[in-house]
Design a binder for these strands. Sequence first.
DNA 1: GCAAGGTC
Length: 897
Amino acid sequence: MKTVLMVAEKPSLAQAIAKILSRGNMSSHKGLNGACSVHEYTGSFGGQSVRFKMTSVCGHVMTLDFTGKYNHWDRVDPAELFSKAPTEKKEANPKLSMVKFLQVEGRGCDYIVLWLDCDKEGENICFEVLDAVLPVMNKPRGNEKMVFRARFSSITDTDICNAMGRLGEPDHNEALSVDARQELDLRIGCAFTRFQTKYFQGKYGNLDSSLISFGPCQTPTLGFCVERHDKIQSFKPELYWVLQAKINPDKDSSVILDWDRVRVFDREIAQMFLNITRMEKEAKVEGTSRKEKAKQRPLALNTVEMLRVASSSLGMGPQHAMQIAERLYTQGYISYPRTETTHYPENFDLKGSLKQQANHPYWAQTVKQLLADGINRPRKGHDAGDHPPITPMRSATEAELGGDAWRLYEYITRHFIATVSYDCKYLQNTISFQIGPERFTCSGKTLISPGFTEIMPWQSIPPEESLPSCQKGDIFALSEVKMLEKQTSPPDYLTEAELITLMEKHGIGFQLLCTSCPLSPISFPPLALPRPHSSQQKHWERSSTDASIPVHINNICQRNYVTVESGRRLRPTNLGIVLVHGYYKIDAELVLPTIRSAVEKQLSLIALGKADYQQVLEHTLNIFKRKFHYFVDSIAGMDELMEVSFSPLAATGKPLSRCGKCHRFMKYIQAKPSRLHCSHCDETYTLPQNGTIKLYKELRCPLDDFELVLWSSGSRGKSYPLCPYCYNHPPFRDMKKGMGCNECTHPSCQHSLSMLGIGQCVECESGVLVLDPTSGPKWKMACNKCSVVVHFFENAHRVRVSADTCEACEAALVDVDFNKAKSPLPGDETQHTGCVFCDPVFQELVELKHAAPCHPMHRSGPGKRQGRGRARGRRPAGRLNPRRPKDKMAALAAYFV
DNA sequence: GCAAGGTC
């Protein structure tokens, strides 16, 4: 029997589709990567009986990157990234070994049906899958077709079966347009990011951002936040005046009448109107109106609306909200949370979903009433053809979910119930008055039926004081007429919800199809005029999901371009402001959202087969290359702004340790990225991030004479010394950049791995447990690769690593001295030498916290080893030959072995 | 160390 391999974009879809096609009659097992499952069943395909194997990938299989050499920032001029630097496809997530998984499952299959999402990215993934799997599949006979593409727009029985019934072919042009997008994003983003980062970090010490990144999505996102900041800064408050009249329809109530002119900006004119009005004693009813109005029930919920409400009403950031929603989804509480669709599919079981909520302690009443009266037809929304709107899938209580998960679930459920509820109906009552020549009005709302606001009480119409009952011609005595002086106020910083709306409007985080405007608005020479962009009309149609909006917002927070203030308002930092103002000065297009859309437009030509992939790529890269050079040449314009806000490197930081070259003190710059700067040599040495740095007893590296510093992590209390020079310029061939003394293979330096290494890490493959000589009296050894920390010999007076090794496990022996009074050693002993893994005397004194049960010592009792298992305690290779060079010259010679 | 796009 022949086999048909079928591949969906994610595991949940593979399962759902297989369930439909097999009518629930399938057998499933997990694939070798643990993430994807394979669902098998038999059926017919092209008139023959076949075995179906339905599985999935997890999004993109491959990602684009530069080849290794071009990932070295110091050795590559960023300008080379535009054309010279070659790119290669790498596995997107090596942990999933997706290529291998696909090949294992695809080997020996005869046909392949591609069920990837029906958008451009999905089309691109089709070809990633084919690249992996075609070489191992059976070769077709003659020119029999073996590759098929299923096109579907929802996961419903009819849609999926229809797709299976008329399979097509994957669209190579659409896939190519994504290849082009990836290459453009990579080359442009990395070139600008590397240049900016190196340029400004080389000059300023307090930027407080480890990376000055640039990207076609994140930069315009930042642009929106700064644009609002500029509006606030340039705002000039204006005085204005309003008239207010008051009548007393009866003794205990008064009604305020609003002026029909609303306000005037000239005090004298306001005063004139006041004088005229004050001459009158009464207000005459000019007319009354009662209009029935409705507040519409909400549209079905999609991702962007959910994120907006989560931010503005629940105080949850989009990234966080999305994570919670995903968890609720995988636990079966809500439907798939990534969708643009606000329209329920025809066959959606609204009643069934509602019935699930009929016994909920919080809304049973409303739901039961709705079921008894009959539900309302939901409003007609937008069908983006992706997934159904977000709805609850089963009832859940506050106690069950708790915290933010409950709050988000509650919102989603109330929103769902609201969509099948009735509109809120109310009366809009208006009374207009004549006071002399001036007209005044008062109005109020009277609720007729609350409709959906019952389940969404925050939307309900606030009860207003009742208006006087009156008719045309009635006269009321005026009790007061006054003039109020007020001031216009500036807008506030953008809320996250507003930013999401702006991003959506400008298509950031969406694939775009322009529906109307002409081609190629990217310009060279650059457009340097500041021009507001958030007021432009929307003319884009979205065509994809929107998972990336939270990512871009998160990006600009992490880079310290904006901070999240109370009310989830985004306030740009000095760095963010200077960057955006700098782009405005040099090339405003770099920060305008149109930059993304212009590129998208070129790409859509590839997708439509109207333009050649290579030509478009070269053309667009060429424009950006020229923009890049112009930017580099004009960087002084941005630098002028930087100078105002930031301090030069030489003026930042505190003197900490001595430079090995000039022996002057170098300054420690704590702000991100933390580093040491020698102003005499004008050299910068990066340090490990996220920890504290201290001088290490004025000890020096024997190789370069730099003073060592001690890095300690806050949480785990792990610490190790490092040489600032070696950390940046590895001294030995087997060392890499970013290694401290605990990874240094120097054969005789007292701080090196060779001298302090004790044995192989108990958890990770390649790490070595290294004595932390600064840790006493709570002595510990820490892995130099992973986070394992082993505590031992508490209160020992001295702990040293001996030159001898354990016969059983090859670990270095440890020599421990205790004070007489505190010694835990048997008898009156104060000193003992032994293996920390095997020595029975040491057994009680070593806390092998992490992997204790795996260690031979704990498996088979002290000292005894079972079988010929891996020697866990084996020492680093250098230590197996512990002969030390005798003098300095011999030592030097040893380095160059 | 970099982008943005899938999704785990």
